[in-house]
Design a binder for these strands. Structure first.
Lengths: 197, 197, 197, 197
DNA sequence: GATTAACCGAGACGGTACGTCACGTCTTTAA
DNA sequence: TTAAAGACGTGACGTACCGTCTCGGTTAATC
């Protein structure tokens, strides 16, 4: 078994020409995050970013399909998934998870990144796919919590996990993005109560 | 108490000079909807709109605070609230409602208007308020359905209507905006099953 | 006879919309000349020009077809035609004219404007036409001098004025642009000697 | 006196390492000429050239000081000097020479190379020197024709050859580059008439 | 035969300028 | 005062070249 045999089937892909500098990726992502925190997506410009990162604009466009693909990757880099509490009780797990979600939103310095990507993904199929991948990836903690609940018998064995995930996260983002209803501890309690009624 | 005290201040505002033409409002709104259907929010520009409506740009800005306020009003004008089915059964009401919601999304020509307003409302408090008003207004049908369910005893008397509204609409918009999971008849059935389990 | 009847046949052309500000033209041309003197055509950029003139780039492009059309007009504005000496003698007229031509070139701060327009006119028919108009316009002094010489009998009545104009100006610009041979008083004397031999 | 003292230092430059491939020079020049003919100097880019010639950009810059030095050499390579007709008569020699000059211009596919070099030479002294060398080299045929005329007595023994060269070539290039006046057989006849009047 | 140094194609790099577009405001004439 | 028309300053966009640099690899002359 040889480590050189990769999934792509290339035995050490014979890249030609000058290879891309790896630290440039990092510099651009870091500058992107800085800039997003400072100014939000409004006020974010590729010219300014290039200047901040000490990089030519062409170098950025060589590495990311679009401004928004870059912003999404910066989001993935900067915002870690919430941890799985694993308290031993489904109710307490969900409760804790929802509260940290609420807390994160409350403390976020700028909240226009997700709405911006949401809009941009309407015009860019590739971005749309990436964004959905990101969202599904962030669902996995909730999914784990719920499956544990089934294993323990806290939920019926035939519970519809997909719908339960939607039932946990849907109301949260509905308030966050659309209705503007309050996102607080009380909301978390009432929502979990409803789900585990 | 005088006629000047009105909701919008327009019973008899003793304006001077040439009065505004009333039909211009309608022409602008109509052109806005046309343009949004044709090109989506991308491709929508105020210059193009003014040309299409046969109207000066200043005339538009005289009547709406911002581009987005106009788009929101066009949305309200074009998209009627879904009807209350009132079938006599809570389950059938919710089922019917959800199915018409799913159907509307499936047949919508352009789906970037709501995401666009979502983003724009991050930078414009007035728009944010209007948008939330719009969203709450569109909740009222669901709220009516649920309250009828309580009256009929299909739901416990102390059911948390706010959370139930979120539980009905949240998963829908979560899939629509974020996860990209399918929005079909099956989804509607499973969701209602979960809520009325 | 009415002054309102113009060559174009428009009786007061009913321009609609906001009229172009006349002083903006002047500001742009002045800034163009300044910038050309300072930096030459190299180092001349539309961004810098717009900033200097206190004007948007779009405003410049609204008024001139291209960067080069602007530069040409700046050249026409800045560089006055040489005067007709009219000394009473053809030889002295030509001598004086050639010497002032030589002097102007010697004192010019930047000499890349004409070569630049020459190149640019290869790719832009409209510019080419304008440039040829400019050149022919600047020939007129020489043409006047020569015709006066014919009238006075200093040249034969059937002298070929077109070719004579070329014979006066051709060698000058050939040295200036191509051969790099010296352009001095001695050259002026030898050239006139040859023409009036 | 050693072999190292040469015009270009290349009798036996004791280079180390891999010697330059000689055929690469030819390939680059050929691709340059092709590209210039196809697209003119506009549309000519070093990236495209390198790709066409199957060569790295660094290889080009290793061999020529600048883009324009390369273009000039391509011009020298591609455009042979006009032949000396040597018909036995000064008038006929000049006439023939001018006519072939006129003919060459008429048939040239792209005429922007010389104007481009003219401009570029404003910013590059080395190029300026090379270009003037090229121009003087191309004068030599006319100079030969004129000197033969003096020898034969068709011109006075003290004729100013420098000025005569200018008188022959100046009007031609003046029309070609500046005035845009026609360059045809008639022009050639009238010009020679004037010079040999 | 090993070492060395300049060569080679490919293409990434930091820059700079380009011309276009849309924004929201302002300025004209006409109603 | 409103209207249509359209000019205005601003500022970001994504592209195209520039000339340099950095890879892995090649090719002679020198050691």
């Amino acid at each position: 078994m040889s480590a050189a045999v990769t999934v792509e089937g290339d035995v050490s892909p014979p890249r030609r020409g000058r290879p891309r500098r790896a630290d440039v990726d990092a510099a651009i992502l870091a500058a992107t995050i800085d800039l997003l925190v400072e100014t939000g997506v409004a006020g974010f410009s590729m010219d300014l970013l290039a200047q901040r990162a000490g990089v030519g604009k062409a170098t950025i466009y060589r590495r990311w399909e679009s401004r928004e693909a870059l912003i999404l990757e910066a989001l993935e880099t900067a915002v870690a998934p919430l941890p799985d509490p694993d308290t031993g009780s489904l109710r307490r797990d969900l409760q804790t998870y929802m509260e940290s979600l609420v807390e994160r939103v409350g403390s976020a310095p700028r909240n226009d990144v997700l709405p911006h990507l949401l809009e941009a993904s309407c015009y860019d199929d590739q971005l749309r796919a990436s964004l959905e991948g990101y969202v599904r990836d962030r669902q996995s903690t909730v999914r784990t919590i719920l499956k544990r609940g089934i294993t323990r018998g806290e939920l019926p064995a035939d519970a519809d996990v997909d719908v339960l995930v939607d039932a946990v996260l849907g109301p949260f983002f509905y308030r966050r993005l659309l209705s503007g209803a309050p996102l607080d501890r009380r909301f978390a309690v009432r929502l979990v109560d409803h789900i585990l009624r």
